[in-house]
Amino acid sequence: MSDTPKIRLRGVTKSFGDKLVLDGIDLDVPANSSMVVIGGSGSGKSVLIKCILGLIEPDGGSIEIDGADILKLDRGAREAVRAQIGMLFQNGALFDSLPVWENVAFGLLARRSVPRAEAKARAVAVLAQVGLAETVGELWPAELSGGMQKRVALARAIAAQPDMLFFDEPTTGLDPIMGAVIDGLIVDCVKRLGSTAIAITHDMASAKRIGDRAAMIHKGRIVWTGAAADLMASGNPMVDQFTHGRREGPIQMELRR
């Protein structure tokens, strides 16, 4: 069944206390494509991605990966699914007790398929892809700038060439040129390695470069999906307001004046 989406969400709900964060999310991500998710701050994008990873247990709905509902799998099978996913966390989440290169090589070392020396060589190669010199590999995460940490986290996510890649704001905090380089790297992972990617971003230029398709989330629901190329001219008033950054429109920011 080649038309089964790689990732399919139906009616996913999640609330924290009495705060409803996800209110019935439906989303399809076809295999070997990339989906960009946009939406206001606090709209539940990170929670959504953590639900798919199995780090947050949704209250209801189904999350299918390759046609199997992961919420119904046992712990071991879910770990196996999670091992196929590379994740870039919004805050980097680098292991600060390990040097940079071991962070990048962590997934490779964990599988024990390659010796340390080879894993280190692979880590250095991936660091070069994200524009970091070999010497950076010997530093500690705390010794890096914010943007460098982000790039190391990205390198760690893609180092083991996983089947699925989730990026939570991959280019936030990077300069525009490095942002474009990283976007190129993500596209490369999808096109050349055949990965399936979900990327959360607030950067419209980046969204168009990375995404095949795009979805907008608002108040816990997907309010629009379409081609990423159409983001700036979607015809949907909410998306228009968001992508053009207008203050007036259907989305009311909850501000107190």
Binding site: K50, L53, L55, E79, R82, A83, I85, G86, M87, F89, Q90, N91, A93, L94, F95, D96, F106, G107, A110, R111, R156, A160
Partner: peptide, 13 residues
């Protein structure tokens, strides 16, 4: 800081 979550996405329990 999500490092424990990150471990589980890197094939490590």
């Amino acid at each position: 800081t999500d490092q424990i979550d990150a471990l589980s996405t890197l094939s490590t329990n």
